[in-house]
Each structure stands twice: as C-alpha cells, then as structure tokens.
Amino acid sequence: MYTTDLSGKQQADKIAEDPALVAAFEARVANDDFIEPKDWMPEAYRKTLVRQISQHAHSEIVGMLPEGNWITRAPNLRRKAILLAKVQDEGGHGLYLYCAAETLGTSRQQMIEALHSGKAKYSTIFNYPTLTWADIGAIGWLVDGAAIMNQVPLQRTSYGPYARAMVRICKEESFHQRQGYEIMMALCAGTKDQKRMAQDALDRWWWPSLMMFGPPDDNSPNTAQSIRWRIKRETNDELRQKFVDVTVPQAEAIGLKVPDPALSWNDARGHYDFGDIDWDEFYAVVRGEGLVAKERMTARIQAWEDGAWVREAAQAHAMKREAAKLAAE
C-alpha cells in the first residue's frame, strides 16, 4: 500500500517525554479527537506520520510514471482525456500530501531528497512495468481499488491534516477505480486480442496488488503502535481480505480468471480463501529490485534535476519583483 510501513522495526524513542503530556495525548487519540499541527505530540508519533505521509506522497508522484507512459498512446480521445485527468489527480494527491507532511515540520525539498537518495520508500506496486493498454485498466481497477481499501479508514486517522487530505483523495480514487474497471470491461467485451491483453494484465497485477497491503500481520512490527495511535485503523491482513472479497466477483463478472488456483469461497468464514503470497518477491521489490525500479527513480531524479534551473529562475524572479516593490514604497 502507499502507506504500508516498509521500514524495519522502529527504534524505541529515546527522548524522555513528559508523562502527563503523553497521557493527555493518548487520551485524546483514544477519544478519536483530531491532533492538529500546533498540538503537542510524541516525537515517535510525528516521525511515524512524516514517514507514512511522505511515503504516500512519493507513491502518488512515482505512480504518475507507469500510467503517464500510456497517455500519448491512449486508444481514443476519450480515454486519453480520462487518463490525463487521472494522472493529474495523482499529482494533486502528491501535492496535498506533501503539504500535510510539511505541517509536521519537514520540507517538501527534504522529502524529495530522501526519495531520490533511496532513503524514503514508495509503494512497491509502481516498480512493475505497464506493457499494454490493459495495464492501465488493471492499475485503475486493482491499484486504485486497493488504495481505496486502505485510505477510506484513513479519513478518520488521528492527524487532522492527513485525515482531511484523505477525504478529498478518496473521492477521486473511487472514480479512478471505476474508470479502470470500465477499461477492463471494454476489453473483455472486445476482440480475442483485447481479452488476452486484459487477462494477461490481471495475471501480472493480481499478486503485486495483494502485496500492496504489506507484510502479514505476524510480520508487521509497527502495526500495533500505529493502530493504538489511530494512524492506522485496520491491519494489513484485514484490508487484504476485504480487497480479495470485493475484487474476485468483479473479475468473474467480466469473464476474467484470478490467477490463484487456491482461491475459493469459504462459507464458514464468509470470505474467500486465497493462496500464499510470494513474500520473497515483495521484500526484493522493497529493497529496490523491482523490474523497473531503476527506470522510475532515474525518471524522477532526471525530472527534478532538469527542472532545477526553472525553480531557480522562478525564485530569482520573485525576489527581483519583491525588491522592486520595496524600492517603490
């Protein structure tokens, strides 16, 4: 997930904090109050949030690349406009999230540098390539679909600016999910070649989508703390199960086969059972070994470096104008 904790076990916080402040903070969080930027908060809470929100922002921005890859090749004008608007929305999400993270005292520049140096993570899903037009459908349907599963509960996350950003973002993500599914529907109602494309996209994106929810709960060291702080509201496995339960019937409805021989409805549980996830692959992608991880980072770094003179010029110009204004007063 964009927000899945991809770091290892966090160091216990070394700073001694006033127990009365900590207790008051914990009580507010337990009471579902929003914590606002000016409120006192434990350092570990702040750090966890900066890590999570900036990772989420990076995921939105890096996530523009696999889909941006198809804007110039979209099959008709309507699809081109929808995709362009969608990728633009993702950029907007990145922007709100960087702003939310900045309220915690870390600048956008610092966050971007952390991304480019490899210190900060982004969702593993964007290190898989988009090979055919069907991948654009699969990403909207599955990746945005998974994002919604994760982000709907975050609308009630304890940090106010993050929760409010999520409200806005969730609305747009559900459009994206529907538009993606609609691409898949059109392909599945199309020619043999189109159906093949659609099935192949599901085959490739299914497991990486399940991995987006992060490691299983028994191997997710920071989940308990995050849930107690209401930064997170459901566990990785709970969200993953929800996603499978919702998505499998959608695949069946358009004649696609989910690539999991172990998948079956379990009446007793009221859920689908599904096969084992290849966690070795997941951790390899987290380490930066995804097929197109190098391409993604190279593209981001190049855009940033190529744009440096533009940012400098804008700043220099603003300063000149400011100076001229002062001189005129």
Binding site: L77, L84, A85, A303, D306
Partner: peptide
Amino acid sequence: SEWCGHAPTIEVDLSLANVALDQIGQA
C-alpha cells in the same frame, strides 16, 4: 501530455496537464 510526470515541479506538472486536457477537449 508528453510532459506528464516529468515537469520541474508538481504544480507545473498539473498546470501543463490542465492545458493539455483543454486542448484535447477542443480537438
């Protein structure tokens, strides 16, 4: 639309995409 995802800042990226979208709509 070739710029999408590669502009000097996110704000510029969004504004170029806006212009592109308008132009595709007019087309």
